[in-house]
Amino acid sequence: HNLTITQGKLFFHYNPKLCLSEIHKMEEVSGTKGRQERNDIALKTNGDQASCENELLKFSYIRTSFDKILLRWEPYWPPDFRDLLGFMLFYKEAPYQNVTEFDGQDACGSNSWTVVDIDPPLRSNDPKSQNHPGWLMRGLKPWTQYAIFVKTLVTFSDERRTYGAKSDIIYVQTDATNPSVPLDPISVSNSSSQIILKWKPPSDPNGNITHYLVFWERQAEDSELFELDYCLKGLKLPSRTWSPPFESEDSQKHNQSEYEDSAGECCSCPKTDSQILKELEESSFRKTFEDYLHNVVFVPRKTSSGTGAEDPRPSRKRRSLGDVGNVTVAVPTVAAFPNTSSTSVPTSPEEHRPFEKVVNKESLVISGLRHFTGYRIELQACNQDTPEERCSVAAYVSARTMPEAKADDIVGPVTHEIFENNVVHLMWQEPKEPNGLIVLYEVSYRRYGDEELHLCVSRKHFALERGCRLRGLSPGNYSVRIRATSLAGNGSWTEPTYFYVTDYLDVPSNIA
């Protein structure tokens, strides 16, 4: 807008934040220059609390790290170098490059900038070799853009010569660093050979998330399962459950009422301010606690030095998902009996873990797994792929695949051998790939016309006998059925096997 004052003059007093240069501009645009008398524009009460600059400061050096910015700028000295009290560095987070010096300023003089007072450097006698002032900004957020400017702080001049310097606002972004852990990993099994893994992005990506790394490792069953005799009275049979499938998407929606109208769909109840505040506090606490764990609990591995020492970490090797089922080394339970199943799973520490690289999504279907087997899954978020990966501390989750139908069934015939004193040795093959492992066998036998009897055969007993022995049988026709019990439950009964026990007292003698 054009402003013209045809008559009258300007009068400025007691404006401590208004620089004289701005008042002189007002004289020019209003056409009143030359009308004012000496005392109409006070030299001592206008701009006496402001830094009124008329020179431009330029930054000469900028260096960044993930949490620091090192700045240096060209030296500046007023005509009387004693008038320079120091520099004021202003900075704040700036997602967009549209910041002005006066953003967030209120009537009390406060604003949204963080201000650092910096002492002037030592003055050199040689004007050509003056030290460049600077400042190291610490405690910054990774991968965050900051708006920065600097200006001088000078003393009051009796001659009211307006001098000083100020830089333009520059924008500097800190470097990326390792992201925080992925949030809320959930693993479920939808079949006997697959596990579905879902997660949420890290709360602090500290860069642009480029991919996720998912490692999985087959877990050995508890050692007590191999040692305890679950045929003993009072000892509860062990059981394991597989990871249940995901709930429906509708039930997972946030901010939804727990109660549904019987007449149909209901609208979600909005969260109160107290609920939102509580969630923010919980989120802040979780982030602080995660940072504490990362800094205190997890110790970084030592990389190899120039002395030739090897990095103890196993090298990563990509495998196809079809090879995942046989990740671990199978060892027989008892070496003397080769027909026992290889369900003991000690994992070799030198073995390469299978892994998958996930790009542009937060889910993965891990296939080719062994049925009813526990897996430990390790999830890392990465925001750099080359020249070397920059990934987060791992988040861990466990899951067990679903049982395989008929995996616990005894394959092959049940054979028998009759000894003296009416002892019958029953023999059968253990299931080759049971659900988890076989903890015991149930032997059901009966003599024709009598009630059915049951015998429990422990895992250890089966390994020693290759089956079991029935003792003290009365003469007669017998039928026997056997079924295995694994961590997933009972298998199917075998087809009945028949044998006849004679009275050993009636056996004919070869003595003449």
Results as ranks from 00 to 15, higher is better:
Ser203Cys: 15
Gly207Ala: 04
Gly207Ser: 02
Gly207Pro: 04
Asn208Val: 06
Asn208His: 06
Asn208Pro: 09
Ile209Gln: 04
Ile209Cys: 03
Ile209Arg: 15
Ile209Tyr: 05
Thr210Tyr: 13
His211Leu: 10
His211Trp: 12
His211Glu: 15
Tyr212Pro: 00
Tyr212Lys: 00
Leu213Ser: 15
Val214Trp: 01
Val214Phe: 01
Phe215Trp: 01
Phe215Thr: 12
Phe215Glu: 02
Phe215Asp: 07
Phe215Pro: 00
Phe215Asn: 15
Trp216Ala: 05
Glu217Val: 02
Glu217Arg: 12
Ala220Ser: 10
Glu221Leu: 15
Asp222Arg: 14
Asp222Leu: 11
Ser223Arg: 08
Ser223Ile: 09
Glu224Pro: 14
Glu224Met: 15
Leu225His: 06
Glu227Leu: 10
Leu228Asn: 09
Tyr230Phe: 08
Cys231Ile: 01
Gly234Met: 13
Gly234Ala: 06
Leu235Asn: 08
Lys236Val: 07
Pro238Ser: 07
Ser239Ala: 05
Ser239Lys: 13
Thr241Trp: 04
Thr241Met: 07
Thr241Cys: 06
Thr241Gly: 11
Trp242Ser: 10
Ser243Val: 09
Ser243Gln: 07
Pro244Leu: 08
Pro244Ala: 09
Pro244His: 12
Pro244Glu: 08
Pro245Val: 10
Phe246Glu: 12
Phe246Leu: 11
Glu247Trp: 08
Glu247Arg: 11
Asp250Lys: 08
Asp250Phe: 13
Asp250Ser: 13
Ser251Trp: 01
Asn255Val: 05
Gln256Arg: 10
Gln256Asp: 12
Tyr259Asn: 04
Glu260Tyr: 15
Ala263Gln: 13
Ala263Ile: 10
Glu265Gln: 12
Glu265Asn: 09
Glu265Leu: 09
Cys266Arg: 10
Ser268Ala: 05
Ser268Ile: 15
Cys269Pro: 05
Cys269Trp: 10
Cys269Leu: 10
Cys269His: 02
Pro270Val: 12
Pro270Trp: 07
Lys271Leu: 10
Lys271Arg: 12
Thr272Leu: 08
Thr272Asn: 10
Asp273Leu: 05
Ser274Asn: 08
Gln275Met: 08
Ile276Arg: 07
Ile276Glu: 06
Leu277Tyr: 03
Glu279His: 07
Glu279Pro: 06
Glu279Thr: 10
Leu280Phe: 14
Leu280Arg: 12
Glu281Thr: 03
Glu281Lys: 03
Glu281Arg: 13
Glu282Cys: 06
Ser283Pro: 06
Ser284Gly: 04
Ser284Trp: 15
Phe285Gln: 05
Lys287Tyr: 13
Lys287Met: 10
Thr288Met: 13
Thr288Gln: 02
Glu290Trp: 06
Asp291Trp: 14
Asp291Cys: 10
Tyr292Phe: 04
Asn295Pro: 15
Asn295Tyr: 15
Val296Asn: 11
Val296Pro: 12
Phe298Asn: 02
Pro300Tyr: 06
Lys302Pro: 07
Lys302His: 13
Ser304Met: 15
Gly306Trp: 13
Thr307His: 05
Gly308Tyr: 00
Ala309Val: 10
Glu310His: 07
Glu310Ser: 10
Asp311Ser: 14
Arg313Ala: 14
Ser315His: 10
Ser315Glu: 10
Arg316His: 08
Lys317Ala: 06
Arg318Asn: 04
Arg319Pro: 08
Ser320Tyr: 14
Ser320His: 06
Leu321Met: 10
Leu321Gly: 10
Gly322Val: 05
Gly322Met: 10
Gly322Thr: 09
Val324Asp: 05
Gly325Val: 08
Asn326Ile: 10
Asn326Val: 05
Val327Met: 05
Thr328Tyr: 13
Val329Lys: 03
Ala330Asp: 01
Val331Thr: 15
Pro332Cys: 07
Pro332Gln: 13
Thr333Ser: 13
Ala335Glu: 10
Pro338Arg: 10
Thr340Lys: 14
Ser341Phe: 07
Thr343Arg: 09
Ser344Gly: 04
Val345Arg: 12
Val345Ala: 12
Pro346Leu: 03
Pro349Val: 04
Glu351Gln: 06
Glu351Ile: 15
Arg353Gly: 14
Arg353Asn: 13
Arg353His: 08
Pro354Gly: 07
Phe355Pro: 04
Phe355Arg: 06
Glu356Arg: 08
Lys357Trp: 03
Lys357Phe: 13
Val358Pro: 10
Val359Glu: 10
Lys361Gly: 07
Glu362Ile: 13
Glu362Arg: 14
Glu362Phe: 08
Leu364Glu: 15
Ser367Ala: 15
Leu369Lys: 02
Leu369Val: 10
Arg370Ser: 14
His371Leu: 06
Phe372Asp: 02
Phe372Cys: 11
Thr373Arg: 05
Thr373Cys: 02
Tyr375His: 13
Tyr375Ser: 00
Arg376Ala: 07
Arg376Asp: 14
Ile377Ser: 03
Glu378Met: 08
Gln380Met: 14
Gln380Pro: 00
Gln380Asn: 09
Ala381Met: 01
Ala381Tyr: 02
Asn383Asp: 07
Asn383Lys: 02
Asn383Pro: 02
Gln384Ile: 04
Asp385Arg: 08
Asp385Ile: 08
Thr386Asn: 06
Thr386Leu: 13
Glu388Met: 06
Glu388Phe: 07
Glu388Thr: 06
Glu389Tyr: 15
Arg390Phe: 05
Arg390Lys: 15
Cys391Phe: 02
Cys391Val: 01
Ser392Tyr: 02
Val393Trp: 11
Ala394Trp: 12
Ala394Met: 13
Ala395Thr: 03
Tyr396Ser: 07
Ser398Gly: 02
Ser398Glu: 08
Ala399Gln: 13
Arg400Met: 02
Arg400Val: 10
Thr401Asn: 01
Met402Val: 10
Met402Leu: 05
Pro403Trp: 09
Glu404Gln: 13
Ala405Glu: 09
Lys406Arg: 07
Lys406His: 06
Ala407Asp: 08
Asp408Arg: 01
Asp408Thr: 02
Asp408Lys: 01
Ile410Pro: 06
Val411Arg: 07
Gly412Met: 11
Gly412His: 11
Pro413Ile: 00
Thr415Arg: 14
Thr415Trp: 02
His416Tyr: 14
His416Ile: 08
Glu417Ser: 04
Ile418Tyr: 10
Glu420Asp: 10
Asn422Met: 05
Val424Tyr: 08
Val424Ser: 01
Met427Gln: 05
Glu430His: 10
Glu430Arg: 10
Pro431Cys: 08
Pro431Ser: 02
Pro431Val: 14
Pro431Gly: 03
Lys432His: 11
Glu433Leu: 04
Glu433Lys: 11
Glu433Ile: 13
Glu433Pro: 02
Pro434Thr: 08
Pro434Asp: 01
Pro434Ile: 08
Pro434Gln: 11
Pro434Glu: 03
Asn435Lys: 00
Asn435Leu: 00
Leu437Glu: 15
Ile438Met: 12
Val439Ala: 13
Val439Ile: 09
Leu440Phe: 03
Leu440Cys: 11
Tyr441Ile: 01
Glu442Cys: 12
Glu442Trp: 08
Glu442Val: 15
Glu442His: 04
Val443Cys: 02
Ser444Leu: 04
Tyr448Pro: 12
Gly449Ser: 10
Asp450Pro: 03
Glu451Met: 13
Glu452Val: 05
Leu453Arg: 02
Leu455Thr: 12
Leu455Ser: 10
Leu455Gln: 07
Cys456Glu: 02
Cys456Ile: 15
Cys456Asn: 01
Cys456Ala: 02
Ser458Val: 06
Ser458Lys: 14
Arg459Tyr: 05
Lys460Ile: 09
His461Ser: 10
His461Lys: 11
His461Glu: 08
Phe462Gly: 02
Phe462Tyr: 05
Ala463Glu: 03
Leu464Met: 10
Leu464Ser: 14
Arg466Gly: 08
Gly467Pro: 01
Gly467Ala: 05
Arg469Tyr: 09
Leu470Trp: 02
Leu470Gln: 01
Leu470Ser: 00
Leu470Pro: 00
Arg471Phe: 14
Gly472Val: 10
Gly472Asn: 10
Ser474Val: 09
Pro475Trp: 12
Gly476Phe: 00
Gly476Asp: 00
Gly476Pro: 00
Gly476Ser: 01
Gly476His: 00
Gly476Cys: 00
Asn477Lys: 13
Tyr478Met: 00
Tyr478Trp: 08
Ser479Cys: 03
Ser479Ala: 07
Val480Gln: 07
Ile482Trp: 01
Arg483His: 13
Ala484Asn: 00
Thr485Tyr: 13
Ser486Thr: 11
Ser486Cys: 01
Gly489His: 14
Asn490Trp: 15
Asn490Thr: 11
Ser492Lys: 00
Trp493Ser: 09
Trp493Cys: 01
Trp493Arg: 03
Glu495His: 06
Thr497Ser: 05
Tyr498Trp: 08
Tyr498Asp: 11
Tyr500Gln: 04
Val501Gly: 00
Thr502His: 09
Asp503Thr: 11
Asp503Leu: 06
Tyr504Gln: 13
Leu505Lys: 07
Leu505Trp: 04
Asp506Pro: 09
Asp506Cys: 12
Val507Ile: 10
Asn510Trp: 14
